[in-house]
Design a binder for these strands. Structure first.
Lengths: 101, 101
DNA sequence: TCTTCAGTTCGATTTTTTTCGAAGTTTGAT
DNA sequence: ATCAAACTTCGAAAAAAATCGAACTGAAGA
């Protein structure tokens, strides 16, 4: 089994979270998950990217503590860790949900 | 006179703000300003960096909308744009002020 | 005026990040 | 057992960001 690194709420750092969200691809994924609950890789509303690149971005989001996987068979469903984020960084999820003007 | 780009609250983007805060040097500067009001370059509690590098980081923070300068003689005093940030990204300033554990 | 101080800008180098294709892994179906 | 699907990992290449020193700028003081 894989060793999935997911920091506890108290171990997340604002710098790592910001670095994760500072890339436009990852911001799109995070916003997509904030709105839609749970999705697998093919459901992220990001333009064409190779699957290895997408996997790389997902890893950074996961290691920052923003998202968590639920592995079901061969599919990996990802979701935003809303409870942990609300506890550690109040307001962040709302920012992701806010309209981009 | 210089052409200082400072976006209005409505023109700030979360991606740019996160990209700015995703670098550890800039995060330190932002946290320093969040706690202490106004400071000039020599007051930022960041380790040794050349002044050109520091200037580069300040530019990114300014262009993202996080900080604003007040130029007085030959000194440039910077401050966090707390009101604009509270309006556009509620909770963000509190995150910067929170203890880093 | 000449010099210094506090920065910014420029140009180059180093480091990091993003990206890809190919190969590997795990699961489920045939 | 074999195969395909849905990923991840690896290694390399390209793109972007961080860093520095040198040169420049604008304000204040001698």
């Amino acid at each position: 089994m894989k060793n999935l690194t997911i920091p506890a709420a108290s171990e997340m750092t604002l710098t790592a979270v910001c670095a994760a969200l500072g890339d436009p691809v990852r911001m799109k994924i995070a916003r997509c998950l904030a709105r839609s609950g749970e999705k697998n890789c093919s459901g992220f509303e990001v333009g064409h990217l190779s699957k290895s690149t997408l996997s790389h971005h997902i890893k950074i989001l996961r290691e920052s503590g923003l998202i968590q996987p639920r592995i079901q068979g061969k599919e990996h469903f990802y979701s935003l860790r809303k409870e942990e984020l609300d506890r550690r960084f109040p307001g962040l999820v709302a920012m992701l949900l806010a309209e981009e003007t």
